[in-house]
């Protein structure tokens, strides 16, 4: 797997830092970090599917939405326990992942991206008109049972989820299956020519990404206690997920976590100066400049800095 001692040391240091963070920052900042944690989970999910295989998904909110709505409906309308509803929501999202997989068997590139965008739009329209008594229609749902109360508990919930997802996906992508999925992104024909079933690998990537998206969506809805179609199936939300993965460094799992934190704090940092939508203009500009400077993302900037530091120490 190519694991080194410093990998574990870095993860341990990161976990310790995240555990101590509530002692160091205000409750307001903790709430910001909670959103960064959820964004990191969604960006990791996108990274497993699109960062690795090169099948750019513009429909990730479709998957997150299945997880969120399934768990919300099961708990609020049918009285399911949250602990039961979340696994069902994950399974339902995996079924959604299979639906997204179907076009990937025939088309790729921008055509695939556009089809997945259509999935998101379709979901947005459907939840408003089909059984609004269940989905809450255009207004969405509120009063959904929550897992925790208060910023501190919400923080621990979200950070535990983010770390579990990040570490498990990082370990998974360190195995040969991660190499095979990256190979699909580089040259699908050569993967087939190496005797591997590309369909099987793509199915694995789509199901894994869907499971993570569903898990994130379900936990998110039970943290917020509400769900609104306008906020969930929103192009800004979609691009925030994609930009977090790209700006952090796609195909790395750690990159999307860094990207999610960077973007969330960038948006929050700009809020006092630019409270309106013009924030997104500055945010987009900074993201664009960073991406032009280093297309491999923030993680590559950190890695190069670390390599330079090490070479200075050793000489």
């Amino acid at each position: 797997m190519g694991l080194r001692w410093y990998h574990f040391a870095l993860w341990a240091a990161f976990i310790a830092f995240m555990a101590l963070l509530p002692e160091l920052v205000s409750k307001g900042t903790l709430r910001t970090i909670i959103f960064a944690n959820f964004l990191a989970v969604f960006a990791i999910s996108w990274d497993v599917l699109s960062g690795r295989t090169g099948y750019i998904s513009f429909g990730h909110p479709f998957l997150i939405g299945i997880g969120a709505y399934t768990s919300a409906i099961l708990t609020k309308r049918y009285g399911f326990e949250i602990e039961v509803a979340i696994p069902i929501a994950v399974l339902m999202t995996m079924l959604g992942g299979l639906i997204v997989l179907l076009p990937a068997l025939r088309i790729k590139g921008s055509y695939f991206a556009l089809v997945t965008l259509a999935f998101m739009e379709l979901m947005y329209q459907l939840v408003q008109v089909i059984r609004p008594d269940l989905t809450g229609g255009t207004r969405g749902m509120s009063g959904i049972p929550t897992l925790t109360r208060g910023a501190l508990n919400g923080y621990y919930l979200s950070v535990t989820l983010m770390l579990c997802v990040a570490i498990s996906m990082w370990l998974l992508m360190k195995t040969r299956v991660g190499t095979a999925l990256s190979a699909i992104g580089m040259n699908e024909e050569s993967v087939r020519g190496s005797g591997l079933s590309v369909t099987k690998l793509k199915m694995f990537a789509f199901l894994t990404a869907a499971a993570v998206a569903g898990l994130g969506g379900a936990f998110y809805v039970h943290y917020l206690g509400s769900v609104a179609p306008r906020a969930l199936f929103d192009i800004n939300f979609l691009f925030t997920i994609i930009v977090a993965a790209l700006i952090g460094g796609s195909s790395t799992i750690i990159g999307p976590v860094i990207g999610a934190f960077f973007l969330t704090f960038l948006l929050e940092g700009l809020r006092p100066y630019l409270p309106g939508a013009e924030r997104y203009f500055i945010y987009g500009g900074i993201a664009l400049l960073l991406y032009m400077y280093q297309p491999k993302g923030l993680i590559e900037i950190f890695t190069q800095g670390w390599t330079r530091l090490r070479s200075r120490w050793t000489t």
Binding site: R176, A183, G195
Partner: peptide, 19 residues
Amino acid sequence: RPFAEMSVVENIRVGLMPD
């Protein structure tokens, strides 16, 4: 048709993988 961002050994690794 190599895997452009992989090293020589990683390229060979893909060929050695079980299905």
